[in-house]
Design a protein around this nucleic acid. Structure first.
Lengths: 164, 164
DNA sequence: TGATATCTTTTAGTCTACTCAACCATTTAG
DNA sequence: CTAAATGGTTGAGTAGACTAAAAGATATCA
């Protein structure tokens, strides 16, 4: 069974890992690789990309909330949003209800190369899907959900231990 | 079926995505989150973490090769290896055959917290595995392999288009 | 209304990691 | 054996992004 745990474990080369771990490590690497490729295509640093991900996932939020979610200071968030805005990836709007507040919204990237990249991945994934029966796909979906949860929980545990 | 393509696509919120895409995005996010947690636990920047990943995956290599693989200059690699060495994550050795060359080797992290984190993930994943039959696990393993390949291919395509 | 609190931006200073170029050490070629 | 080439390090200078603190704008409360 696949498993992601060895991805960042140096000192053990892929060809020495048990098969399931190797697969997990490869998936993890591939995800990160794709992330990086998209990021560099957009001209974003990892931190900016992460912030954009938060915005995309959780929807528009105020600068202060974004600061909290990214663990940055308010000043740093101003610069962050500047960069995203300049790249055409996010927008600033004043909150009509409270005009001190700022609402930062992720906008769909206008860059056609980015759209193309996602379209390419979509097509490739459609092909992957075609290899499996509905039952198998259901199992895969469940595995993905459980694995995501496990990864999140571990990440949270690490962060918690870090605080202590 | 799961699909990773929307992960970095802002402008579409998770609750508006089709189910399979949402799952893929979540897995992708979770992988990245875990990566970051481990990285911060080791006190590594994203770039350092990436370099360590290359070393772990491809085995020991010379500083020059590492420079090429990371797209950094020679000087920057010196600093990079300094940091990794200081953190106890990599070692420098002179190549006995050509004593100008340096062989950089990733070493298993001595930090018990890192080992603990990986052990925790291993246990969690074992539990996930227990939910599935051997046939299902086989399908999952295949999906993971195919998806990794697709992600890698897309990342490579992006990089190639970028050069042009 | 005036005082105070909240949210963001600005400014000044710092830190880190990078590039480029000069510099050692070693190897290879003439 | 010297001259040129190769591999890595060192040092100067630079750029980007961060923090902290002051400032600006708006809101809330008495």
């Amino acid at each position: 069974m696949p498993d992601v745990k060895n991805d960042a474990l140096p000192g053990q080369r892929p060809d020495q890992m048990p098969e399931p771990d190797r697969l997990g490590a490869e998936l993890s690497d591939a995800v990160v690789l794709f992330h990086e490729a998209i990021g560099s295509l957009m001209g974003l640093s990892a931190a900016d990309h992460k912030a954009l991900g938060i915005l995309g996932r959780e929807g528009p939020m105020s600068a202060g909330e974004l600061a909290e979610r990214t663990a940055l200071t308010a000043g740093a968030v101003t610069g962050l949003v500047d960069r995203l805005e300049r790249a055409g990836l996010a927008g600033r709007e004043r909150d009509p209800g409270d005009r001190r507040r700022l609402v930062v919204t992720a906008s769909r990237p206008g860059d056609p190369r980015v759209a193309e990249a996602f379209a390419g991945l979509g097509a490739a994934m459609a092909e992957v899907t075609a290899h499996f029966s509905p039952d198998q796909l259901a199992a895969i979906a469940e595995w993905v959900a459980l694995t995501s949860e496990a990864l999140r929980a571990q990440a949270a545990a690490i962060a918690a231990r870090r605080e202590a």
